[in-house]
Design a protein around this nucleic acid. Sequence first.
DNA 1: TTTGAAGTCTTAAATGATAAACTACCTAAA
DNA 2: TTTAGGTAGTTTATCATTTAAGACTTCAAA
Lengths: 352, 352
Amino acid sequence: MYSAKRTTSQEVAARAGVSRTTVSFVLNGVVGMNISPTTRARVLAVAEELGYVPNAAARMLVSGQTQTIGLVVSQAEHLQVDAFIPQILYALSMYSQEAGYRVLLETVKDVSKPDAYSHLIKGHHIDGLIIINSRSDDAQLPELIRRNYPLVLMGFPDWTESSGRVHRVTSDGVGSAKLATQHLIGLGHRRIAHITFSPEIYFATQDRHKGYRLALEEAGLEYDQKLVVRGNYSAESGFVAMQQILKARHKPTAVFVGNDTVAVGVMAAIQQAGLRIPEDMAVVGYDDIPTAAYLSPALTTIRLSALEHGQKSIAMLQKLIRGENVIEDNIKCGSELVIRASCGYKKNLDKT
Amino acid sequence: MYSAKRTTSQEVAARAGVSRTTVSFVLNGVVGMNISPTTRARVLAVAEELGYVPNAAARMLVSGQTQTIGLVVSQAEHLQVDAFIPQILYALSMYSQEAGYRVLLETVKDVSKPDAYSHLIKGHHIDGLIIINSRSDDAQLPELIRRNYPLVLMGFPDWTESSGRVHRVTSDGVGSAKLATQHLIGLGHRRIAHITFSPEIYFATQDRHKGYRLALEEAGLEYDQKLVVRGNYSAESGFVAMQQILKARHKPTAVFVGNDTVAVGVMAAIQQAGLRIPEDMAVVGYDDIPTAAYLSPALTTIRLSALEHGQKSIAMLQKLIRGENVIEDNIKCGSELVIRASCGYKKNLDKT
DNA sequence: TTTGAAGTCTTAAATGATAAACTACCTAAA
DNA sequence: TTTAGGTAGTTTATCATTTAAGACTTCAAA
């Protein structure tokens, strides 16, 4: 069995001929402590030589800080199919590293369970929390918000029923979905279907649905319940959903899909039914996954910046952990409509 | 600023009228200690009532165990584009949770840097390590192997130059690549291109290249350097690589692509050049990403089980951490060729 | 010569859980 | 009556670090 030869500050101290305290002062650059340049240099040299890294546990215990943030992925299996979550993960990991934090990844199957992730907090494993794809049935969220626990929600809409302040990093899901739908309307479509990318329990799903509906209403088009079908993250769910829509007597001529992965399945169903995209059925997605520009036809979609989401989340969480005043509690990230071939706007395959 | 009201074992002890030690014994179910059922019940009740969760730092410090495993993603940006890594992440997270371990996610930009992830080990943040997509230029790996640090490598081929025992969970990359190429040969193709999915520095890439070459050799076909182009994880890189291949005077009739994401770009390039898949150019991928069956045409590919990889890695690492004897140090996971439309095997769109 | 103050480092307490060693009590056997 | 052994705990040391408080120099000023 492997046993770590722990190099302690004690050893560094002994070798440098000083006390543990001095070692701590030097390595942490404590100001106000007068350590002679000679001693400082010697301690640093010895620490380097022995490859000394302070024991995390001891440091956490005495300081109460773990320098670790928790990353909760609400419905774990989404990680397998949704292409946007990994991008968020990447961004969060990078920026938290930059800010001096480690990332504890917690994938949760069922957030409605009372202890889905709160053991991380109670056990003091983490200093703060970021929740990806918060759900409205999250059992521990209200309590955390009430207690002002450092917490940032990603993909969480306006929420007023709470007893505390909710900090979130979002993009304008309603606006973007509306924009996407309006683009289809502008191309002359009058009967437009919508396939959601997950159950309505997710706020992001609700938002996109709302934007779709708003665009229809403003254009004076009928909102038809039968043209709204639920997807469930996977391409397969999109395939099935689109097949159902294609069974309708009065078929739509366009479909706005809640995310790109689901849209891949949707496109497959359309093509398998012998219809052409966009001539017979226009398709618009959401997320701009890395392969979106290379599907056939290239997918028109809403582009979000995972990097921006990640960066802003980490910055916000860091402030919350430090107890700094966070003025803006709902940071919006930009989004844009990327027009490609699948919606009927004809031009060369857009590779951007 | 939020300050946690730490509930300590001291408080539980006081409330239950026992010592801290007794609380520890009861909550950890230490055997051989005689605690009366009455006391046990009272302690459990009080712990429950106060919502007591042992402080992680204190526990780590005294036990030397963190109950946390490190998860290193070798080249961080792959997380954004490669669809297989998130699946692995999901599997690892799930199975480690099941085994009572937390997951510390470390994305590394450059493993050749001397301290890319070893600070996790030296700082005793983790009990063991899993490295996804190990690279041959990893700077700290030889040292860790020599020291017998609990370590599992995923996607690591045979490696003999090491001074210690290397533990790995792999699939037969050479064999699978060979199988895929042989399938194309069996369909009558004589000139087959290969597009790698990443620089040759990755072992998985080398393996797939090797399998491709082996199949050609065994079939007595010429290995043409000009037909092997390097991709770089993204669909875009596949698009560019395929364009280059299509410039050749003597074009191939089939292409074996190192992974599915890259294959998406490859297919786009083929279709944009006015060629049909599979009639003018057959395509086979690798990984069976969730959207593979829904591309047009559906992509023939090699299916790996991320769950199997994850499960076996965690099981192996757990043994290593415990110091148990690990007999098999190179566990192979299964893989299979999934035949769909893109290679020329005609049948209905296969949704499995 | 004494006092003060700055400079340089040390001592000791504290963090919260675990585990080895120890205690106190009771019962039953010698 | 003494002793051994079991029962049901407690006391105390330990983990490696941080930090408040203290201590020892050295030099200058009174």
